[in-house]
Design a protein around this nucleic acid. Structure first.
Lengths: 342, 342
DNA sequence: AACAAAGATGGTAGCGCTACCAAATTGGCG
DNA sequence: CGCCAATTTGGTAGCGCTACCATCTTTGTT
């Protein structure tokens, strides 16, 4: 006869301990915790008392094993420090904090291969739902998502062919709106400056190009891109490059607000008047854009709300009532500010 | 006779399937995966072939249940969008991505109660290690950490009384260094502007106060704080308040770089010369501070490195060789820039 | 009052994996 | 050549929980 719980570390209470103390069967404790309405009020009280007294916390691993379903949301984003994704993730966390679901966060570093690896890993946990950033998964990733056997929400972007559900907006339309605004404001030699040209940035660039071509203003020399990760200092450097290439530049649409801020600072430093000589438009509308001097026109996107909606849709799907709308376009807003007011 | 695997979702391969295919015992497969050197080369090869062919991925839940130890690092931070913690978290993720450990991330929202709740929750998973931000845990949280039965690393700050291990730096010294620098540069009416006065901000304030008192310059009216979450726009507003309160203000030490940036923009807007009329020092040294115009003096902290070191120490402790140094002070650097060069 | 239906509770048998021990094989050495 | 130790492999018995079914109540219906 071996010692009963030699292997378990601290001998923390199990469901059997609770059941014994409450004078009921283990399964009843399990039910009282998961579907209280199926247990009489009286037993529920007794069980709760035993739980409190023992400080019982269910073991999620045992739970997942027994039910073949972990109470985990797998979340895949390409970056943890990019404020944009941080806000999406925050929306997801906030929406899930009151639920029993945990979050398994993965950082793909903008790599398709890493995404596949993480999906493989997440799949082994049988998550309750998967939330992934973007719509450009590799074929292998797409297959993994389709066979995940759980609701899948692609976020940040909308597109024609969802794996399951989608919440986002059109980056192409955003890029076009930003560019059209510059054109309407009277700018003509409008540059595009973009770092880390991920698929979303590419589509913003496509929107820029569409607007420029429609106005007969497109010139490939106006486009400056790099695969390097975006930063404020990079924005400054790229702006200098762009200006060296096209000295007549009179406006820039920046891939994101970090770049835009770098451009703004360089304008200050080089005594280039904004918006008079150069108009600036950013993307995402971080808090600081409206505080900057001059304040910077930007495309406001609803990152936090995207996170919330993604969770809401996934939870609805888990509960069995899939939303009638598979694709939710949360749109964007052009925030007109001083940097383009000439 | 019930169907053998009716409950399991997609009938994914189990260790038994691999064992059968490789013609070995299940336990040998388990060993080949976890401690390959204890299995003969030949069997190892056979097993690997079977794993590849079946696409077997071990179930982490079953693993955790059987071994009473989950391959999970619990990580608790007060904010997900604050760039500072995002970088720590990134350091942690990057250091752990090649290991079998997953990460369970919790957001305490700067709340001690929420921290307790999350520690309770994390404890139920028997994590391999815990990394928590800060050193000011509530007594209940501290008890949970002490009885977690795994390595614990407190990060971001150092202090005299670690639960287990610590990686960080002294916020008090940082605040003092920033303030002394302003004093040396010739500023006299130096304000402190601080939002979200968490314990680390409090200690930066204490450092400011110590430096000011030592120079005989302290005046409580110079201190402007709020518990509101920090942002660039809040920095602007608080600076206006501070200036209204003390019109002779000639310098500010800001709790963090967001606030400093808000101050800088307001100076531009109100045509206040920096560094001539007002000197500005920030805290953390985000990338943009050196690009700003004028560039902003700040205290550089090593967030990413803190994350990496925390993981390295935890991994060492798990492997059985605890680092001889329990408390690692990674220090900080005062980055002198244009905003205080007068 | 008799009987079916619905509700409440419990027992049993795993979920997929690993700790623990036992067995089989090999090698070294007197 | 025999014996013990080291190495390699496998069997058994759970880890803590829940799905599934069985049992026992309670309630509703005619």
């Amino acid at each position: 006869m071996t010692k009963p719980r030699s292997r378990r570390g601290g001998g923390r209470p199990t469901i059997a301990d609770v059941a014994r103390k409450a004078g009921v069967g283990a399964i009843t404790v399990s039910r009282a915790l998961r579907e209280p309405e199926r247990v009489s009020v009286e037993l529920r009280r007794q069980i709760q008392a035993a739980v409190d007294e023992l400080g019982y916390v269910p073991d999620p691993n045992a739970r997942a094993l027994a039910s073949a379903r972990a109470e985990v949301f797998g979340v895949l984003v390409p970056s943890l420090t990019n404020n944009v994704f941080a806000e999406v993730v925050r929306g997801i966390y906030d929406s899930l904090s009151a639920s029993p679901f945990r979050i398994q966060l993965g950082n793909t570093h903008y790599s398709g291969l890493e995404e596949e690896r993480l999906l493989q890993l997440f799949g082994s946990q049988r998550p309750a739902a998967l939330i992934v950033a973007g719509i450009d998964q590799t074929p292998a990733s797409r297959k993994l998502l389709e066979s995940a056997g759980c609701p899948v929400v692609q976020v940040m972007e909308t597109g024609p062919d969802p794996v399951d559900m989608m919440v986002g907006f059109s980056h192409l339309d955003g890029g076009r709106a930003a560019t059209e605004h510059l054109i309407e404001a009277g700018y003509r030699r409008i540059g595009f400056i973009g770092a880390r040209m991920d698929p979303r940035s590419q589509r913003r660039l496509a929107g820029y190009r569409a607007a420029m071509e429609a106005a007969g203003l497109f010139d490939p020399r106006l486009v400056t891109t790099t695969p390097v990760l975006s930063s404020v200092s990079l924005g400054r450097e790229m702006f200098r490059d762009a200006l060296a290439k096209v000295p007549t530049l009179d406006g820039v649409f920046c891939n994101n607000d970090d770049i835009a801020l770098g451009v703004l600072f360089e304008c200050h430093r080089a005594s280039i008047a904004v918006p008079k000589t150069i108009g600036i438009v950013g993307f995402n509308d971080l808090d600081m854009m409206q505080v900057a001097f001059p304040s910077v026109t930007s495309i406001r996107t609803h990152r936090y709300e995207i996170g919330r909606r993604a969770v809401a849709m996934a939870l609805a799907a888990i509960a069995g009532n899939r939303p009638e709308q598979q694709i939710v376009d949360l749109g964007f807003e052009l925030k007109r500010r001083e940097s383009t007011a000439r």
